[in-house]
Structures are given as structure tokens and as C-alpha cells.
């Protein structure tokens, strides 16, 4: 049945699957649910220290321009991923490779911006163990940065698969699953950006 489904261009449906549900995609959504709870704990901790005297000192030296650029970069990278999916759906292998490459580059740029931000804060004397507020900031943003790094590595794997032409207009779940993860990382940053830089 799976072979037949694959040759007809449809994802195989395993016995016991929910109607219209691709179990691979469902698995990634369950993983995302798990990640939501992780990030909620870190964000809750950060909110608890918001506007404390320690956070006020720390907030005064934050480079808002870096946050704005990082946000723009990550939002643009999400667009690149969906354009990559649209490209492979049209049968454009070249388009998929180009958009994946841009996604990797933008992810790397975001990590570079985060490293710059951490370096500047460290130069101002704000380290991980300076105060509870700085701990909350570093743990939360580092955990997000780790996710971006994993996303970049994952994107490199997807790009390799794309280079070998493993994806076709009928078979591109690997790109879609990576996309779900990458967009989730973007959604988390949308929230962190508001909390850290805007309020």
C-alpha cells in the first residue's frame, strides 16, 4: 500500500492514522508541543524578573538595533523556507536549493548577531552569573540560539538531500518537516523580541 501511495504521489497512510494526518508531521507537532512547554518556563522566568532593578540596568545597555536586525533576518528566513516548499511543489529543484541556501545563510547571520549581542553585554559586565535577571536572559536566549543552530544543521542536511535530488513535487515531506521546526523557532523569537527589546 505504501509503495502504491508513493508511486501515486501521496504520503503513505499507516493503519490507525487519524483521517488526513501524516504521522511524520504529527510527530513534529508533538515535538513542538514539548518545546512550547520548555520555552514557556523560560519566558515565565524572564517575565518574573521584568522591570526589577537588575533588569533595568541590563536593559539600558541592550542594543535594540541588533534585536531589530535579528528579527528581520529570522522573519525573512521563514519566508525563504515556504518559498522553497512552493518551489519543489512546482518541480523547481534549483529554486528549492537556492531558498534552502538562503535559509542557512540567514540562520547563520542570526547566530552571528546573537554572538555579537552576548559579547557586547559581557563587555558591559553582564555575565550569566551577574544577577538572576541576566541568568534568565542568557538561558532563554541561548536555548533559542541552540534551536537556531540545530535548525541550521538540519537545513544543511535538507540541502544535501535536495542537492542529491531526493525531493520531487510528489515527495518533499523532509522539507515540510524542517519548515515546521524552523517556523516554530521563528514564532518563539517573535515573542522573545517583544519581551526583551520592546516592553
Amino acid at each position: 500500500m505504501s509503495d502504491l501511495a508513493a508511486t501515486q504521489g501521496h504520503a503513505p497512510v499507516e493503519p490507525g492514522s487519524l483521517p488526513g494526518v501524516d504521522n511524520r508531521k504529527f510527530g513534529v507537532w508533538l515535538f513542538i508541543v514539548n518545546e512550547i512547554m520548555f520555552f514557556a518556563a523560560f519566558i515565565g522566568l524572564f517575565i518574573a524578573y521584568k522591570n526589577t532593578p537588575e533588569m533595568a540596568d541590563f536593559h539600558a545597555v541592550l542594543e535594540q538595533s541588533l534585536g531589530i536586525i535579528g528579527t528581520s533576518v529570522l522573519l525573512f528566513s521563514s519566508l525563504m523556507v515556504v518559498l522553497g516548499i512552493a518551489a519543489i511543489q512546482r518541480g523547481s529543484q534549483r529554486g528549492l536549493r537556492l531558498f534552502l541556501l538562503l535559509t542557512i545563510l540567514l540562520g547563520a547571520v542570526f547566530l552571528g548577531i546573537q554572538a555579537t549581542e552576548f559579547t557586547l553585554l559581557h563587555e558591559h559586565g553582564f555575565a550569566l552569573d551577574t544577577s538572576s535577571a541576566t541568568s534568565a536572559f542568557y538561558v532563554m536566549t541561548s536555548f533559542h540560539g541552540l534551536h537556531v543552530f540545530i535548525g541550521v544543521v538540519w537545513a544543511c542536511g535538507v540541502l544535501f538531500a535536495a542537492w542529491r535530488k531526493w525531493f520531487t513535487p510528489q515527495k518533499y515531506a523532509g522539507v515540510e518537516l524542517f519548515g515546521l521546526y524552523w517556523h516554530f523557532v521563528d514564532v518563539v523569537w517573535i515573542i522573545l523580541f517583544m519581551l526583551i527589546y520592546l516592553i
Binding site: 500500500m1 501521496h10 508531521k25 518559498l83 512552493a86 511543489q89 510528489q170 515531506a173 515540510e176
Partner: peptide
């Protein structure tokens, strides 16, 4: 949950790129 409900592509919906750009 029979095999008959696999009448469509489960991987991702086909959305035109201008909509992605608009978002």
C-alpha cells in the same frame, strides 16, 4: 481509518508563493 482517506497529498498544501510574500 481505512486506506481510502489518502485521496490527497498529506505532505503540505499547495499555496501560491504570492500569498507567502503577502504574509
Amino acid at each position: 481509518m481505512t486506506d481510502t482517506h489518502e485521496a490527497k497529498d498529506l505532505q503540505a498544501p499547495h499555496i501560491k508563493w504570492p500569498k507567502y510574500v503577502a504574509v
